[in-house]
Nucleic acid binder design. Structure first.
Lengths: 106, 106
DNA sequence: ATTCAATTTCGAAAATTATGGAAATAGCAT
DNA sequence: ATGCTATTTCCATAATTTTCGAAATTGAAT
């Protein structure tokens, strides 16, 4: 993973609303959640939600799939794993941390 | 870890300059690096560097220790571990990921 | 074709962040 | 006290982000 991409993903998650949004999607599991359902849970205007969602999709942390008029959103676990891996490998020299996590994600 | 704190740390790391800066500190290891040395490595104006550094310190990702006129900066590994742990536990429901990393960091 | 529901795009204002020169401060040595 | 080095704070500017109402779009159903 390139530093630029990692930074973009970190920035995407580095907003309370988006982090909360991402968490909601994670908890929804493999079934995902329609944009409208997410809106119901978070209670933010649809246009604001759409912008935040786009940011997560653009950085590769969330995927979307059309089902008729509704858009199903899913947390992209491999993307998150790659990011955690980057942090562990590139940004955590602690002997206790980096090798252990690196192995766990392998 | 609270969502707010995690978001603040993610945002701090979500800037290419600051992520690079953090990486430099990680690579410096336990000896840390003086602000001036960091500046030499990254080649950015001191006032800009100071702002970015402050952000990392404020969010708990970097610590500083005075040695006469120079300030030694160190990556705060426990802080990073806590953040990685948060991401793994709260934001990564993937069966392959969360439990494994959680155990590795325990 | 019209309607309805779901979602995005447009457009614009407010807030925050990034950047860096210049001045201020801190600590030590002379 | 003066000077020197290291670093921060002050200040201003430019750029980006956040927010969200209103209008446009998409897709299905009548």
């Amino acid at each position: 993973m390139k530093l630029e991409k990692a930074a973009a993903q970190l920035e995407a998650l580095g907003n309370p609303t988006r982090l909360q949004l991402y968490r909601v999607l994670v908890r929804a599991g493999d079934d995902g959640l329609a944009v409208g359902s997410v809106q119901g849970k978070l209670d933010i205007p649809s246009s604001t939600l759409s912008h935040h969602l786009k940011r997560l999709v653009d950085t590769g942390l969330v995927t979307q799939e059309r089902q008729a008029t509704t858009l199903i959103c899913r947390a992209n676990y491999p993307g998150m794993n790659a990011l955690i891996g980057y942090l562990a490998d590139e940004c955590c020299a602690d002997a206790i941390c980096a090798p252990a996590v690196g192995k766990a994600l392998a």
